[in-house]
Design a protein around this nucleic acid. Structure first.
Lengths: 208, 208
DNA sequence: AAAGTCAGTGAACAACTGTAACCACAATCG
DNA sequence: CGATTGTGGTTACAGTTGTTCACTGACTTT
């Protein structure tokens, strides 16, 4: 049995995290496909070759960043979609949750929005897989909802996908208005709520 | 009055277009922020310095590509949203139109999806402006529709934005399934139709 | 027919890139 | 304890990058 957190492994994790953090910072103003390995190590204050001890390539680092940005987000799904007094209540809660997350982790959100369609295939795939997991979780949660009686599987999947996409659109909208005048930010929140409300209305009358 | 198309200006436009085409090709596998000017000139078969006769930088070229990809798309708005027999008819028509456009200009669609949130600020802004134009055109068209009676300005803008975003999501979905088995492509078309239909339903019952 | 314009060339530059081979030395293990 | 492991450092290499400068020569204007 080896020590799971000796001084050595702890130090290694620390450097690895420093590389991830530095990369995330540099990625605010460029895409992953133009991020140089030397650039990252320079920002951390470590030799270029040390990079290889942690990642095969910058694409590899990108995949790790996807895990970091989206991996810990799954528990939020259930709480967001869990039943509420009324629809508007739930919508307001969801929008606030997204706004809070964007404010707390803007670099992560930017990274995902940027690399979802970005130039690095493995990273794109990693994001697609995480989003598919989200969609499946949303679908499962929707299926337990009373208002989903009579819905076909395909319809449920369609709606789940719509919600996931809408979540990303909203997050990216909030990101753009992060340092905008407050009036514009309030308009963004209002737009996001209205769009979700329209989807809600469509949902209620879907089986007519 | 100078000749608007002497041999000289024609030749210049030809090389400029060759640069744009080559860049678009190279951008299928990377993002603009990692596209080198030498890379582009090499692909065209022209000296690196010739690049400067046409663009200040690769960012400049990117903005030109945005015009090329989205500029000629505005006339399609009116015809897409123009009245039809029934809603499903119009939805089917719109989805077919998007599918056709993606199949005809995949590189353009990929470029827009990729650089919309990409690492080059001027290009992001150019795309945002074009999309805002689209949204405004959609809003104007919606306002003439009989079913929009009683809608507030904010609601109309919200719906227009939703349509534009949905258009991009659909285009990017079709792009991903371009060389997938036909069954998957048909599923993508079906999903796109269902999502638009849900929005339609929400629209009809919005004022309840 | 002479003069002027200007798209494209070729050489040179300093700075940068990924990666290879080899070394140092502290933490870990038998 | 000594032996081993492995993170990180050092040096070096061959390519690449954006940009500059002076240039050619075909087209345009006078």
């Amino acid at each position: 049995m080896s020590h799971t957190s000796g001084v050595r492994q702890a130090q290694k994790r620390k450097t690895r995290q420093a590389l991830l953090d530095a990369a995330l910072g540099l990625l605010e103003e460029q895409s992953l496909s133009s991020l140089g390995l030397r650039e990252v190590t320079r920002a951390v204050g470590v030799a270029p070759t040390a990079f290889y001890r942690h990642f095969h390539s910058t694409a590899d680092l990108g995949v790790a960043l996807v895990e970091e940005a989206l991996g810990s987000l799954h528990p939020m799904i259930r709480t967001t979609l869990s039943p509420a007094e009324d629809d508007d209540e739930r919508i307001a809660r969801a929008v606030e949750l997204i706004a809070g997350h964007v404010a707390a982790h803007p670099a992560h959100v930017r990274f995902i929005a940027r690399e979802r369609h970005g130039g690095v295939q493995p990273v794109r795939r990693a994001i697609r897989e995480q989003l598919a997991r989200f969609a499946e979780e949303v679908r499962a949660e929707l299926a337990t909802d009373a208002s989903a009686a009579g819905w076909s599987e395909a319809d449920l999947r369609m709606l789940a996908g719509l919600y996931v996409d809408q979540m990303l659109i909203t997050a990216s909208l909030f990101l753009e208005t992060l340092d905008a005048p407050e009036e514009e930010r309030r308009r963004a929140v209002e737009t996001a709520r209205r769009q979700l409300r329209l989807i809600s209305v469509g949902r209620r009358h879907w089986l007519d």
